[in-house]
Amino acid sequence: MSATTVDTPQEKRGSGSKSKYVPQDGCLLEVDDLYVEFHTEEGVAKAINGVSFDLSQGETLAILGESGSGKSVTAQAIMGILDMPPAKIPSGQVRYCGRDLLTMDPNERRHTRGPEISMIFQDALSALNPVFPVGWQIAEMFRQHRGMNKSDALERAVGLMERVSIPAARERVKAYPHQFSGGMRQRIMIAMAIALDPAVLIADEPTTALDVTVQAQIMQLLADLQQERQMGLILITHDLGVVADVADRACVMYAGRLVEKSEILDLYAAPAHPYTRGLIDSIPRVDQKGQTLAAIGGLPPNLTRIPPGCPFHPRCYLARDICSGERPELRELVPGRFAACHFSEEVLGA
């Protein structure tokens, strides 16, 4: 392979990058008081209700929560791939390098997808187009965004497939998605997402559909790539186990709100919200064999009828009168630690 076809260091972000987007004080992405609702026949589902967080260069942020907590919707809102309608963004900002993506010219925004912000999905089999060869699908990034010719773009695709450790990449570049295993498909998805060296990579449940052994490999690959390219990585998952080693910070979502935000190690060591605590307690642990697995009772609320007060109170072991009457705001407990619970101190102390 000739040197020009490999991702050369010169092309890396921050060293002679052609991007017109420059991070401000290292801050890549700021989500500011974002609201998303879905207008359906059953009523208005309030999927996201005032979510704020930020992501810095080289940082890995985990977004945790059960299904229906709004984590995927947040990702899709950042990416700009929500179906509108039924989705609607009544207020909020998503700033990339200081520019609000939500008010940006649609065509300009389109050109941020891929070169600036990129995303990988849970189910690579359905996320890849079944009728085009995988190499073609990766090469499409170079052809559409960089105007490369077919053979050069395919050559780059082979390089990327080799980078994500697909064996015999050159032979398999013409194969179709269904001809790969689940883990290999997810690698192809990752290769496609990092093709244009984006500053932000969003991974929506990247390992959920995979076998446990493969999960670890994919997480390792993501962590390596993040290190190598100094991307901001947003890892969305319901599985706290898979992110502990990779993430720097974590946001915990419940019913479309952040209920806790902190350094990941602090969060694991001592959760400040009963919900986070419930999530951590429900991870099976080898050292507690024989004990009953703690599960959070009940189900997440229907988003068309979110309970008043703290949305978690019907399932909360700590719930008191105030919880159903007054909604706790996200507040800073100690520097860098935020939680939305009236009794966070109690939870922390427990």
Binding site: R110, G114, S118, D123, N129, Q144
Partner: peptide
């Protein structure tokens, strides 16, 4: 289909 969503997120 999911792959159309992927196509959009590829910036096509």
């Amino acid at each position: 289909a999911d792959y159309v969503r992927t196509a959009i997120s590829k910036g096509l």
